[in-house]
Structure formats: structure tokens, C-alpha cells
Amino acid sequence: MYQVNYHRASSVEEAAKLASQGDARLLSGGMTLIPAMKTRLAAPSDVVDIARIEALKGVKVSGNTVTIGAATTHHDVAGNAELKSAVPAVADLASHIGDPHVRHRGTIGGSVANNDPAADYPAALLALGATVVTNRREISADDFFMGLFETALEDGEIVTSIRFEKPEKAAYQKFPNPASRYAMTGVFVAKSKDGVRVAVTGAGDNGVFRASEIEAALTKDFSAAAVEGVSVSADGLMSDIHASAEYRANLVKVMAKRAVAKAG
């Protein structure tokens, strides 16, 4: 790791000020940033630790609205009793990220801001039509995720919370890579009064995306059988040593069927 200057922010305002200096990066759980700095893929001049800012932590379920603070760890999301009862799909998703030690550090805000094309949370946010709240504005998930590791966040903008409405039904299913356990394809299905939204992670060559053909089929008939007849194109899907685009296209369908079955 190259030399770096560490700062611990005690408030979002202080973090924003500290993050504006040099080539600073925000540090939340650090489960991506620290390994990236160790391999010198990232070499920020400064890191601003926001993990101990109390205002960024916690899960709140108020009526049908769920708000999760950006610095809430996967462990705390997975174990939150209110969330498990309101939107179990999100708690379940969090409980399968990485491993227990990673879940004790990694945060939802960090995952969302990083937008790894194989991360789990982006699929949940996109399918739930979530809102990403920052220190400057609110951004809909539709506008937030812009490609591989790219988001609508501007320099110095800090994700403060994630907000979404409780869906009628929702579930997430992923096919983890047998070695890394990252999603080779993960599908989040959500049915609400506004319709059905299906988001896919791990498969697209430009990051998380919505599977419109599957959405159309599920809007008519919310059942695993309805997905069976859909043909998912391999265009725009990733091909790598783990799986071809065609294999991933099939996984999209299989994971969507499993998610629908799980959503009930």
C-alpha cells in the first residue's frame, strides 16, 4: 500500500469537508477499498473514515417506508428484526454477502457507492425502485447506477441513506461463483402496486440492469412458470473464464424463476 493520510470524520459535514482535499476517498467498511489499496489498484492521498458516524447507522421501518443508514453493516441489516419482518428479501440478501467477518465491516452505502458489477445490493435497489439519499440530494436507483463501478455521485457527494417502499412480494436468488462466491448472476424480483421490477447483477457487461422481458411476463402472471417461456438474450452479458454470456443468460432465467418461487 502507498502512503495515505487517515482522517476520522465525526459528522457528514466534516466528512464532506475532509473528502474535498487532494485525491481523498471515503472509507466506510473498507472491504473493497482497503484490498484495492493493498494491491495499488487504488491510491488515494487521503481516506476519510465515515464508519463511526452515528447518524449514518441503523435501519428504520416506518409504516411502509424502510430507511437504511449508509454506514449500516451487512451484519446489522441481515439481523434487523423489523426489516426481517417488513422486507425479508433485503435482510436475506445481506446475510449472503461475503462471509461473516466481511459482513461485520462492509456497509450498504459502501457497496452501493462502489457499484461493483457483481455486488448484490445494486440489484435490490434497482428492483425496489429505491432512492439513494446523499448529503446533497435524492437520486432514484434508476438514475444512480451508471455502469461498471460508475454512479451518479459527484465529487465529495456522500451517500447518507437508502430508502424504499415495502413491496408486496420480493426475493433475491444468486448463483455464487464456486470460488469467490461473488454473484455470477443474481436476480432480485419485486412486486408492488406499481408493477413488477426485476433487476440482474453479476451478468451485465455494463453493471446491474432490469430484465424487461421477464418483467413483462411476470406482470401478466407472477409465477415461475411465466418466466419459463421468456427468452433472455445473451447480448450485453459478460463472458469470462467463469461463464459465457449464453450461460449467464440462462442463469438469469433460472435465478428469476427461483426468486419468484421464493417470493411466493
Partner: peptide, 19 residues
């Protein structure tokens, strides 16, 4: 490298000492 920080298991190779 797993140790407990504030009662929770973490990977100490993926965390700065100052954190």
C-alpha cells in the same frame, strides 16, 4: 488473520490499525 474488534470477528488484514 481473524481477530475480534469490539466483540465482532473481522479480517485484520483488511483493516487499518488506525481504524
Amino acid at each position: 488473520c481473524v481477530v475480534h474488534v469490539d466483540g465482532k470477528a473481522v479480517k485484520s488484514c483488511s483493516m487499518l490499525a488506525v481504524q
